[in-house]
Design a protein around this nucleic acid. Structure first.
Lengths: 172, 172
DNA sequence: CCGTTATAGTTACATATGAAACCATTTGCA
DNA sequence: TGCAAATGGTTTCATATGTAACTATAACGG
């Protein structure tokens, strides 16, 4: 969803000058400076990087972002239920249900029923699922490195610390 | 063979320990730790905060996130064309077109045709648009403050610096 | 036990979104 | 000029996503 950027038209300024004068000067209106507004910046950076990663595997493996997240969690925690997957991916249960439907259909995840509770499913990556995981995970890591490469070591450390603090607390 | 689940106490590491041994131990698989994976964290934080802000005005003003972004940009740069709005909001032109359709329909944005180029539109917030802007902008700022309140002064400064570096290169 | 309530998942419906096709106008240039 | 290519915007179509309703099973209270 990152809009493809174009070479930026310098002529923009003329338009701006031509129509700008009236309202935006009004002191009482204090418009937001979107480009320095934290939530907006987060959204842009997040979408840009997520999209870059997704581009790597989306077409190649016919794998959506939500599906990949489910796979990533199952790679770490074998045998989770759908609800637990939802918790760990911060996705809602409907999204997880749909992702699982596709993954199971594609033979990438196996789904069994829990022994003592027939409502629960017991999920695992299949061999095919692992094969994909082992290709996608390194690509994702590579993209992460590329993003971090824009920062020096000190900044990287701070970013890690800051994001940990900003991450919403778990919901148990 | 996934193991059996028990009372599923979320959050706990027992789940991990109990089911970890088999596949995920395999050195060749090296699963991603989603919760420490930068792109994932960014996505969570971004969505959480954006949603929190949106909740403030979504219902109250029947205003979507994309529409609000368009309004915020027009508040700062009066008379932009749709394409210019798209550039400044990092939204694609289809999204902008749709947002504008709703905003114009609702009388929040006025649309004229550019003097020398009949393809271009010339956009401005209407009085009603400004009225809404002047209510929403402070709420958005307040949410931003709440987010930043989770960080100490030093962290805030670093975050600002880091995001500026991570933001994709822009137009003007 | 039995009825109520809670939980795991799925389905349905309505809305949002992106890609590509599509007009209308403008620009480039032979 | 004249006409192909480019540009601003809108529409179409297929997909994605969220909310609420729904099914099945399990847990709880009397």
């Amino acid at each position: 969803m990152p809009a493809k950027r174009q070479p930026a038209r310098p002529s923009d300024e003329r338009v701006l000058l031509k129509h700008a004068p009236p309202k935006q000067a009004s002191p009482e209106h204090a418009p937001l400076e979107l480009e320095h507004f934290l939530p907006y910046q987060l959204s842009i950076v997040s979408n840009t990087v997520s999209q870059a990663i997704a581009d790597d595997y989306q077409r190649r493996f016919d794998l959506g972002v939500t599906e990949w997240r489910v796979m990533a969690v199952l790679a770490r925690f074998d045998g989770l239920s759908a609800r637990e997957v939802a918790e760990r991916t911060a996705m809602d249960k409907v999204a997880v249900s749909r992702a699982l439907a596709r993954l199971v259909e594609a033979g990438r995840v196996s789904r069994a029923t829990h022994d003592g509770d027939k409502r629960r499913s017991v999920l695992s990556l299949s061999e095919a699922g692992w094969a994909i995981h082992d290709q996608v995970a390194p690509m994702a890591r590579q993209r992460e490195r590329e993003l971090l490469a824009k920062l020096d070591g000190e900044e990287q450390a701070w970013l890690e610390r800051i994001l940990d603090k900003l991450m919403p607390p778990e919901s148990p």
